[in-house]
Amino acid sequence: MLALALSAIVPGSPEAPIPASDTRFAPGTEDSAVARTVGGIASYTRWPEPMATLRICVSGAARHADRLSEAARTAGRPATVRRLGIGAAPTGCDLLYLGPMRPAESLGMIRATHGRAILSIAESDPACRGGAMFCLAVSAASLSFRINIDAISRSTLRVDPRVQRVATLAGGGN
């Protein structure tokens, strides 16, 4: 298991730690751990155009999105958070955080990101088969994530390959 101080991340720094794939946390701090991990993932993502603020959009019945504004600490830039209705176009979003919803609804939200510079993170797709780039697995005492290489490769975003070292690859890889 890796234990990393995610708040020490300096985006773009070659010696900066990457978000841990298995982060242990105290009970009741899941939302903060999710925010740190989301910010860490964002810090290792490059958008085609530089941006001053990370615009996070949340859709679905997300259980761990209440503290996503804290992602700013590990993302290396201010973050704003707004809710989107299920099926709403992710206009003005840099990061789409998907909570639980029906598979068809989730797929529609993911499809709406195709061709756009939007990082997608699913909160409740532990097998990472719904099309999001990153999928969180939050349990009572730990947080891990999987990556969907296919979704990342089809995106206009560039994700630092060091993230792959600590993530579990979707489809039975690492």
Score class of each variant (00 low, 15 high):
48 P>K: 03
141 A>C: 11
135 C>I: 04
120 S>Y: 07
123 E>F: 05
92 G>A: 01
88 A>Q: 15
52 A>L: 05
67 R>F: 06
10 V>K: 15
90 P>G: 04
107 L>S: 15
125 D>A: 10
44 Y>C: 00
30 E>A: 15
159 V>N: 04
46 R>N: 01
41 I>W: 10
94 D>V: 03
40 G>W: 00
2 L>H: 13
131 G>Q: 10
102 R>E: 14
50 P>V: 04
42 A>Y: 09
127 A>G: 12
13 S>G: 08
170 A>W: 07
26 A>Q: 13
166 V>F: 01
24 R>G: 03
105 E>C: 03
47 W>A: 06
35 A>I: 10
120 S>I: 08
73 R>D: 06
136 L>S: 01
49 E>Q: 15
103 P>D: 15
1 M>T: 04
10 V>E: 12
169 L>E: 14
93 C>L: 14
162 R>K: 12
141 A>Y: 07
106 S>Q: 14
25 F>P: 07
41 I>H: 00
161 P>I: 14
9 I>L: 08
44 Y>D: 12
94 D>G: 14
94 D>I: 08
54 L>T: 07
37 T>Q: 02
83 R>I: 10
155 S>H: 05
55 R>A: 10
68 L>I: 04
79 A>P: 01
90 P>H: 11
13 S>I: 07
84 L>W: 05
142 S>K: 11
48 P>W: 00
160 D>Q: 14
172 G>R: 11
98 L>Q: 01
162 R>T: 12
89 A>E: 15
63 R>H: 13
13 S>L: 10
102 R>G: 13
117 A>L: 00
42 A>E: 01
92 G>Y: 09
153 S>C: 01
35 A>F: 09
166 V>W: 00
4 L>M: 15
96 L>H: 06
103 P>T: 10
126 P>V: 02
7 S>M: 07
171 G>K: 08
